[in-house]
Design a protein around this nucleic acid. Structure first.
Lengths: 114, 114
DNA sequence: TCCTTACATAGACGTCTATCTATGTTCTAC
DNA sequence: GTAGAACATAGATAGACGTCTATGTAAGGA
């Protein structure tokens, strides 16, 4: 399964019941796609750094230095997160501002409800 | 980072504040290890199938057929989940019974709290 | 118009992962 | 103690992933 070729996912419809029932293959694949997006230390840090910034938004140039990664690498991870719908992208002039999609983030919590 | 060489993780200490603060590298790596364990469609299905079984436990031979996977492949995935502390293993005679570690599962929900 | 800055894309490379077949181990039954 | 059943481990292989360097694109300023 390729992370980058899959479309964003409606989490609420993927796992409306948490672990209450068997998860069948298509839903399991959609959920795994979403979880793969955050199952990376760099991307977890990116999300938390964005969220902890002023106005809970950050541009790429604010993230490369604290993470000690090249700009293309940061862009790559942000793209993965954006394609999973976990962050949002807004271009303002030369800068691109990223923010966490709080609603989608909270939807993920439903998977862990019993 | 190798999933199988890392020791289980205390989730509560990893992400006690959800996204409220920056996640630093060591914690990000521990969390990612845990998330990688469930960021796989087969393992998500295994967890849900185990949990939906009688007494919320299942042996390997109950899981190979519904998932259409070989026995060694199922064993491999169960090992990954067990090493992450997400399922527990109990040998009774010839059979080995696996069950979901509900407490740890719910701890993961804390990551998604705002 | 040209330069600089901010960001994205392309391509390459080493590592990790998911699966398989083959084999080992442990337990029960006869 | 031998045979069979249940499960684990080992080794191999194809594909995916994270990172980099190099390059492209778009916006702003002199």
């Amino acid at each position: 399964m390729n992370l980058l070729t899959l479309t964003p996912v409606d989490v609420a419809s993927c796992a409306p019941e948490g672990l209450g029932a068997r998860i069948e293959r298509p839903q399991a694949e959609q959920l795994a796609t979403l979880l793969k997006a955050i199952a990376d230390p760099t991307r977890l840090q990116l999300i938390s750094y964005i969220n902890a910034s002023n106005n809970a938004e950050a541009c790429v140039c604010n993230l490369t230095e604290p993470l000690a990664l090249s700009q293309p690498t940061v862009s790559h991870h942000l793209k993965v997160l954006a394609e999973a719908g976990l962050i949002e992208r807004e271009k303002r002039g030369t800068w691109v501002w990223y923010s966490v999609n709080q609603e989608r983030w909270q939807q993920l919590a439903k998977l862990f409800e019993v």
